[in-house]
Amino acid sequence: MSDYKIIFTGPVGAGKTTAIASISDVAPMQTDAAASDMTKKRKAQTTVAMDYGVLKLDDGEQVHLYGTPGQERFDFMWDILTVGGLGLILLVDNTRDNPLHDLKFFLNAFSKFIAQTAVVIGITQTDVSQVTTLDDYHNELKDHGLNVPVFEVDARDKKDVSLLVQSLLFSLDPGIQEA
């Protein structure tokens, strides 16, 4: 049985966990939940290391959905997580102070992986703030030499997240047949 993975990334609060939860066959688990009692006593709240979900395909294969830690102090994990990944889903929170800066940061951080695979971008919270428009994101992407899917996304909406994943798959291979 083969296992594959899709990486979800973006700043803290962008909706990675929720987006994974929208399509995952299992409830996203925080991978450091098994910390020892001593560690738990030092930290009242479980520290987020990584979110995880899975898509179970008909033939027993699994596609693992990994949400990278959004905090920059965990960036050492990003390279490890992307090894063998199919592609990248970058979520950007439109209500943050400088979402274009966030976009630029993550595109640079994952530039090697993006060059080898593909990236699609979901903009969350556009119903709350429209200061930064889709035109702004596309202009920023042009500076990076990229013409990739950029969608407004409600991370709770399975259809929105599904369209993001679909666009990633078609970006990787337009030849695949639609189900």
């Binding site: 179970k56 695949i176 639609e178």
Partner: peptide, 20 residues
């Protein structure tokens, strides 16, 4: 002609899963 890639089969299966 649009050539199938090595992972076309996998992508089709994933597509079926998330669209269905």
């Amino acid at each position: 002609i649009v050539q199938a890639t090595k992972k076309s089969g996998l992508f089709s299966r994933i597509l079926k899963k998330i669209v269905g």
